[in-house]
Design a protein around this nucleic acid. Sequence first.
DNA 1: ATAGACAATGACAACGTTGTCAGATAGTCA
DNA 2: TGACTATCTGACAACGTTGTCATTGTCTAT
Lengths: 359, 359
Amino acid sequence: MRGPQSQAHKVKRFQRMKATIKDVAKLAGTSFKTVSRVINHENTVGEKLSARVWAAAKELNYQPNISARQMRGGASFIAYIYDNPNSHYVIEMQNGILQECHNQGYELLIHPIDFKSSNAVTELERLVSSSHIAGLVLTPPFSESAELIDLLLSRKMNFARIVSGSSAPDTLGPCVFIDDCKAAYAITDYLIKQGHRRIAYLGSAETDPSSVERLKGYTAALADHGISNEETLVLPGEYNFDSGAERTNILLSADTPPTAIFACNDEIAAGALFAARIKQVAVPEQLSIAGFEDSPFSRQSWPKLTTAHQSNTEIAATATRNLVQAIRASRQEETEDAELQTGFVPKLVIRESTCQAPE
Amino acid sequence: MRGPQSQAHKVKRFQRMKATIKDVAKLAGTSFKTVSRVINHENTVGEKLSARVWAAAKELNYQPNISARQMRGGASFIAYIYDNPNSHYVIEMQNGILQECHNQGYELLIHPIDFKSSNAVTELERLVSSSHIAGLVLTPPFSESAELIDLLLSRKMNFARIVSGSSAPDTLGPCVFIDDCKAAYAITDYLIKQGHRRIAYLGSAETDPSSVERLKGYTAALADHGISNEETLVLPGEYNFDSGAERTNILLSADTPPTAIFACNDEIAAGALFAARIKQVAVPEQLSIAGFEDSPFSRQSWPKLTTAHQSNTEIAATATRNLVQAIRASRQEETEDAELQTGFVPKLVIRESTCQAPE
DNA sequence: ATAGACAATGACAACGTTGTCAGATAGTCA
DNA sequence: TGACTATCTGACAACGTTGTCATTGTCTAT
């Protein structure tokens, strides 16, 4: 199988050296500096020459050498720092960022950082001052830490945040905001229209922005339908299975248990589903359960979860695109007229874990 | 607690700009070239001078500039290509690689590649020929593709493989092999010792090396205990929930269903668990179920899964360490005397999804 | 027609590192 | 002692790119 002959052949065929800016210049019949100008979108090169350069670059499949660029001062790396126990979320984000980085000619450096650790700031500082990095993509919880944002601002480091909210929290740079409130409203509204009146809300910590947003939507939907908000049905907790199961147990043990549960994420919903099964409460016939996230679990569970879907990959790609634009603007010292703040609204996905309220 | 003033002063002064090799040279009172030699472990510098250089480097917290190094020819990036629907697995591996990369002064570039896609080879080729990269870490399925391995060999590209097996498949470079066979033996042996005689095996595709290895262990354990291998109990399938549920359904509908199921990974086990619940078969009282992987699911399910644990982070770190060593050896054209092939054996983790066989 | 302004282009240095080669120092042998 | 190694060290070029500045060409206003 491992024929040495064919190997030798391959070596020759593929060891072509990567084209440099000078190769492009030679082919386009100009100086390499002019090519540099064209590639970097400085608008000081004539149209005809510019076109010729682009053609040459395309022909040679020219890709600027990141390292050389880096050395001359202009960083060509984007960093993604993450601290999220949810691997699925991290990977989706990472894939989106990566995709857009490559589109834009940047490379991605990834850095897991323990957010709660005392030296998280130190580590971020080291990262930022390593001078490799043109900008950062921040997801929660980093994107919602005033301390980190301040640090980055003081270092004049570009960053794009992905946050929970119906609008960007400020105008300090590019931002993607995810309207969890509106999505939570849609879920709650849907449950109410299915005849549910006692709908429980299983959130995460009371200070967690995403949970707060979702609670807002939940509350608003109830109010719009004239349903009073019952305190006993709103239980804070954690974004995990155990916490979901535990709280569902409490709910189902009450005198008048809810007919529906809106879980703040799929893991909580998984716990709820499980607790219901233990208590022999049929889902969805006796109890509707909705999640939030559209994780793989929501499609593997039985019944499959009604939930809210957001394309993390797309969100991350958008944030990255905005970030790159901001980086380019800051390089050229031009007025940043572009609107670099984009909103997303997760969509309701109706599956089998919810149905009409019993009688 | 930064110590005396003079030091604080220095720290301040140098933490603004990153220290370069010339700064170190000046502090050590030598030429910057000598510093380069010391840093790169060329053994041609005298002991005393060498020590002085190290001290200076440490004091200035000197880190070689990767880009500059890169440009001069010596690539300082390691690539991790992945195509695994299992996010958890990818993240664990990634973290391990990352950790060791940073220890060794390399940066990590990550590249999701669709293994089944027709242009997977092309993409890998582009990656390899981009000349940024000193080596690759390969996990299944990449690590088990003869075509890819051949390509890398022909390019003289360093790579470390992580594969399934009781030993390395060959001596073509660094390799970490995971003895799935032994681990599967342990699980099966344990089940047998709990009194089970009819133990089903739910594998993945019949050509998948990891599944093959696990089946070997299963078969060996049965043989050692004088239990005949029943064909109807060994069902190939896929590494996912649905496949696990479906096959378990078949098993439980048989005239004499098994009293235990050994699932080839946790997702299959999850499906099995689920199917059992639908059929109202109590786990573990009527049916023991063991998984393989120790994924988060195995700790969130009820009952919690008996499974095999392997530290993917540690495995990945080891592979990376071996890779870096191979890279260094290949640079210096020295004889590679070091043994760069390391084995791991996943450990049996007994939880609540298994117990003694019913009477 | 000519100076001045402005646009387009190119020559060259610099970034931080390693490879090459030549020079310096010490140790050995005749 | 003098020459010859062997060992160690340093000067310089080169990698591919972008910033700076100088040069050329073109147009406008006098």
